[in-house]
Each structure stands twice: as structure tokens, then as C-alpha cells.
Design a protein around this nucleic acid. Structure first.
Length: 207
DNA sequence: AGCACGATTAACT
DNA sequence: GTTAATCGTGCTC
């Protein structure tokens, strides 16, 4: 019985989000990622949580998007097929997790800014040692630290059956529980890009 | 080869 | 509220 449960727990392919989920307009994907389950597999051990905050970065025209620099070694993943991870390093110390979206050739991605831990709590707690639980994964750099996400995951295919980073169907979040606001940290980005309400967050009381 | 800056965080006044 | 930490990236010379 225990063996069957354990097997079932790990064979989650039926729950996984497929590539067609990512191959859609960025704003739609960013909204619908709220409530889905982000899973990190390390040697069979799962850590993860429910996505509660995202931001959309859409094409070369979007001056807040890294793709505004065009096709470079850093941005090439965003020009590739949807359903892959775009992980980049910034401020000399932080990793940021994004998912590539839209049709191959159009550079767009969704930044994951916050999750609610739901699996592998002890591992997450250890990696975020000394901080209160509310601050374990409430920021894009924090959640990468908590789930041990770094350059090794850049370009990883989330839809590969052997993926060590992927998404599963989670809880539905109604529009009444979702807020829109400008994206964070685009201090030197010109308007209108700086103020477009391309940030999506689940209201706290929702989860 | 050198430079300015960054989709942040944590610690400080 | 302010600021240090810290290094990859893209741009200029």
C-alpha cells in the first residue's frame, strides 16, 4: 500500500502542464500560472509550492524585457520553444526563474515572483535558515534559493518526462482573488512599459 | 579591456 | 527610509 502510494505520488505526468499551456499569449499564461504547482526534483526528492505571483515580459518591443537587447547569448532561450526555463543571474548574487512562453521565435517569458511552499518544507526551511516562514519564498531570488534553482536549470525543458523542474495543475483562483499592478524593479525603464499592469498576484487570503 | 547597471535581498538608520 | 553586497551582461573604446 505504501509502495503504491509512493509510486502514485511520483508518477505525476497526468497532472503536468503541457507545452500547449505555454504556447499562448504571455498575459494569459501569467494569469493562469497563479495557483499551479511548481515542482523541483532533486534525486527523487520533491520541493515546491503554489505559484502566487508572476510578471509578464513580452517581446523585443517591451523595454522592460531582456529581449529588448535582441538575440544574445543571454536571451537566446527566450527565442526558443515554449515550456522551457529561462534562468538568469542579477545583482551579482540572485537567480531569477522564468518560463518561456508564446510561439518559438517570439521572445517572451513569465517571471515567477512568489510561491507558497507546499512540499519539501524541511529542505526549504534549511535553505532559508533563520528567516520567518512568510519570507521563505516571497520574492524571485528567494524562491530560487529555496528550491536550489540556478544556471543549471537555464534552458531546461519543463515538459520533458525526465524534467527536474516542472509544473502541475493546482488550485483554481477566481478573478476576484487576483490583483494586477505594475511590474516591480523597472526603475529606469521608460513609459509606458514601466507602468503596464503586467504583474499578477493572488490575494493573500486566497491560499 | 573597461564600464555602468541590474526583473534583488538583507541589514541598517 | 537608505545602502552594501557582488558579478554577468551588453555596450563603448
Amino acid at each position: 500500500m505504501r509502495g503504491a502510494l509512493w509510486l502514485n505520488y511520483r508518477m505525476t505526468s497526468a497532472l503536468r502542464l503541457e507545452r500547449k499551456f505555454f504556447n499562448r499569449p504571455t498575459l494569459q499564461v501569467a494569469r493562469e500560472l497563479l495557483g499551479t504547482r511548481l515542482v523541483r526534483l532533486e534525486g527523487g526528492e520533491r520541493t515546491g509550492g503554489i505559484i502566487v505571483e508572476t510578471e509578464a515580459y513580452i517581446g523585443e518591443e517591451d523595454l522592460g524585457c531582456h529581449a529588448s537587447a535582441g538575440y544574445t547569448p543571454r536571451t537566446q532561450v527566450m527565442y526558443g520553444p515554449p515550456g522551457h526555463a529561462y534562468v538568469y543571474f542579477t545583482y551579482g548574487m540572485h537567480w531569477m526563474l522564468n518560463f518561456v512562453v508564446e510561439v518559438e521565435g517570439f521572445p517572451a517569458a513569465v517571471l515567477i515572483r512568489g510561491i507558497k511552499p507546499s512540499e519539501g518544507i524541511e529542505r526549504i526551511a534549511a535553505r532559508r535558515a533563520g528567516r520567518p516562514r512568510e519570507q521563505w519564498t516571497n520574492g524571485p531570488g528567494k524562491l530560487c534559493q529555496a528550491l536550489s534553482i540556478n544556471r543549471a536549470q537555464n534552458g531546461a525543458d519543463l515538459c520533458d518526462p525526465e524534467a527536474e523542474l516542472f509544473l502541475e495543475c493546482g488550485v483554481g483562483i477566481p478573478d476576484s482573488c487576483v490583483t494586477n499592478s505594475p511590474r516591480v524593479g523597472l526603475n529606469s525603464v521608460p513609459e509606458p512599459w514601466k507602468s503596464l499592469p503586467w504583474r499578477f498576484a493572488a490575494k493573500h487570503e486566497t491560499l
